[in-house]
């Protein structure tokens, strides 16, 4: 679909009506994210709550290998808090002087350790399904944040009439094909928020999705901030260049 849009950008929406291609699953509801739009930013409190949901719920199956604990300082945790959060995980280090690998508490500079040693171990523990790494999950799925949120709130149990689920599968409104191996990960009160926010299913889903959006694109705010000044600068420069061009061409019949 993006391809079509890209092509039409050249020819002033020559093919705009073509954009309604059908897909298997219904479009997930669009959420009013704080980071929507050209100037949106992340809500630090939400990201911190989202990290809590990830660490307490998602991490039991899903890796987050591209995030280092030190990155958490960007979402408002202090250096000491980051050290504490990191120390709750164990990472492998070594070899030591005797040549053995050993486990030690994680430090800020470590990446989040993966729950499984490798893909085979992950599949073995999950009935053959592979819980994907979540580091880029929002950028790696069509529909982005809305889709991830939709999956988290889109379970239906029992499934709609006439649907026969395969062994070990769950019905989800927004998953392509509707049969998803992941059991509903969240429910009301699955975690307890320190800031007093009520941990409804939808709240947790939104928080963890916002957090995963940040992990997918941690430079989003910096990018937009820099972008605004760059574009404003270019508009001024281009205006000057246009005036200069007009001045220079003023003595030519063309």
């Amino acid at each position: 679909m993006k391809k079509i849009l890209a092509a039409t950008a050249l020819a002033a929406a020559l093919w705009a009506p073509a954009a309604g291609a059908s897909s298997e699953a219904p479009t997930p509801p669009s959420v009013e994210w704080s980071f929507n739009g050209l100037f949106g930013t992340f809500d630090r409190g939400q990201l911190q709550r989202g990290y809590q949901v990830y660490a307490e719920v998602c991490h039991s199956c899903h890796a987050l290998s591209l995030m280092a604990f030190r990155n958490l300082q960007q979402i408002g945790f202090s250096e000491e808090q980051v050290a504490q959060l990191a120390a709750q995980f164990e990472v492998q280090d070594g070899p030591n002087d005797e040549g053995d690998m050993f486990m030690r508490p994680a430090r800020a500079s470590d990446h989040v350790p993966s729950p499984f040693a490798n893909e085979q171990a992950a599949r073995f523990a999950n009935n053959g399904a592979y819980p994907p790494d979540q580091s880029l999950i929002v950028k790696a799925r069509k529909g982005g944040s809305d889709y991830i949120h939709g999956i988290l709130v889109g379970y239906r149990d029992p499934p709609p009439e006439g649907v026969t689920l395969n062994e070990g599968m769950h019905f989800n409104d927004y998953f392509p094909g509707h049969q998803i191996a992941m059991a509903p990960p969240l429910s009301d009160g699955r975690v307890e928020y320190a800031d007093g926010t009520e941990a409804t299913l939808d709240q947790q889903a939104k928080d963890v999705t916002a957090f995963l959006t940040w992990v997918s694109e941690p430079t989003l705010e910096e990018r937009r901030r820099l972008g605004i000044s760059v574009i404003l600068f270019l508009i001024v420069l281009t205006g000057l260049l246009y005036a200069l061009k007009r001045q220079i061409w003023s003595d030519v019949d063309h």
Binding site: A140, I231, L234, T238, L241, K245
Partner: peptide, 29 residues
């Protein structure tokens, strides 16, 4: 002069994508 002005307009479009829709031309996969 004319090329430089054109370059300015082009850079606004190009950097508009870079800063505000960097994955527009890309594929999630």
């Amino acid at each position: 002069a004319k090329d430089m002005f054109g370059l300015g307009v082009f850079m606004i479009v190009y950097l508009g994508f870079v800063f505000f829709a960097p994955n527009f031309f890309g594929e999630p996969d």
